[in-house]
Nucleic acid binder design. Structure first.
Length: 328
DNA sequence: AACTAGACCAACCGCTGCATG
DNA sequence: CCATGCAGCGGTTGGTCTAGT
């Protein structure tokens, strides 16, 4: 093949992004929508490779990204999905629309792996977490995954989706078990579920990209706030500054434009936000009581009557991958 | 107070699948 | 049908921060 690198090595900037670069990227995406990443560097003047732009957008600037602490429920979900799907972080991330695959991957590698190992070593609970750990430790040992080298299976997308539907079914059951097992977590009692730290009442978790930039700039402009992880860290811990400069859905609209283009987690996130207003109100409403993702997830899991949609399509019709996330 | 080790996270790299000419 | 290019994904690395000594 001898494919040339995605970007010439000369004149391409690497390393951490500056707020200025972020701003350029965001304004471009808001105007043109995500996608056609190859054109981004030339059109924006960014000295970045297209890949880097895409990554920066999907992992950091994309609207709706939640950063910071993972909740117990998220943790459980990740563990079980990992056991079921293997290291298909994008697929896993599609169940956690507010998290990026990179984030989940990092969290898995830094926290959950160790946690599971410890649990295995202790072997006290022996429950399904152990089973999940076993499956995961084996390197996507769960039969549902392609296993092998850990790479994506060489099956056509349709088949992959079909299989994923099966996975979803299995995941549902596992999740039901998980959520009902942990008495301390009490996922079904919203009062018990601690509100998202990033979500002050009345504020949405939906941080638009421009808001992200605003925070970044804030951090940079503030004396002593800049440098390294400063601005990013501030973004990761709180979104309270997100009340300013909310763009009128342009970012979200741009994001949804990507739904037709990409099929990954980002697309799922985007696809579920057909309208900014509905999304924000949904999120804001959920933010008031319980984490939106999990309350919806729970209803998805527990609403057997509603399963018809997914179940019917399980083996006969291929339900679009974005389907599960519509419950969020 | 200084140094070291570990943890964490953002970004990069290489590979793969899909779309297009 | 084949070759090429692009976008996406997962693994890995490098830089920074924090806790411990």
């Amino acid at each position: 093949m001898g494919r040339p690198p995605c970007c010439d090595k000369v004149g391409v900037k690497k390393g951490p992004w500056t707020p200025e670069e972020d701003l350029m990227l965001v304004s471009y995406v808001q105007e043109h929508g995500p996608g056609n990443w190859r054109a981004v560097p030339t059109n924006t003047g960014l000295m970045r490779c297209s890949k880097s732009c895409r990554l920066r957008w999907t992992n950091y600037l994309r609207p709706g990204i939640k950063r910071g602490n993972f909740t117990d429920q998220e943790e459980k979900l990740i563990i079980h999905l990992q056991a079921l799907l293997g290291n298909r972080w994008a697929a896993i991330a599609s169940y956690l629309p507010e998290r990026t695959d990179n984030d989940i991957k990092n969290y898995w590698n830094t926290h959950l792996k160790k946690k599971l190992k410890k649990m295995q070593a202790g072997e006290g609970d022996g429950g399904e977490d152990g089973g999940a750990a076993g499956a995961s430790e084996g390197g996507a040992g769960a039969g549902a995954t392609a296993g092998g080298g850990g790479k994506r299976p060489a099956v056509p997308k349709g088949q992959w989706e079909r299989r994923l539907q099966t996975d979803i079914h299995t995941a549902r059951q596992a999740l039901r078990d998980a959520l009902s097992l942990e008495p301390s977590a009490q996922p079904l009692a919203p009062a018990k579920v601690e509100p998202l730290p990033t979500t002050p009442p009345g504020c949405t978790t939906y941080a638009s990209s421009a808001e992200n930039i605003a925070r970044l700039l804030e951090g940079w402009l503030r004396p002593g706030g800049g440098g390294g992880k400063g601005p990013e860290a501030s973004g990761s811990t709180s979104t309270t500054a997100t009340t300013q400069q909310r763009p009128q859905c342009s970012g979200e609209g741009a994001a949804s434009a990507s739904a037709s283009h990409s099929g990954g987690a980002a697309a799922n996130t985007a696809a579920q936000t057909p309208e900014c207003s509905t999304e924000t109100s949904k999120m804001a409403g959920a933010a008031g009581s319980a984490p939106p993702a999990f309350s919806m997830l729970e209803s998805w899991l527990l609403d057997d009557g509603g399963m018809g949609h997914g179940e019917v399509g399980l083996m006969t019709d291929v339900v679009p991958l974005g389907d599960p996330s519509e419950f969020f």
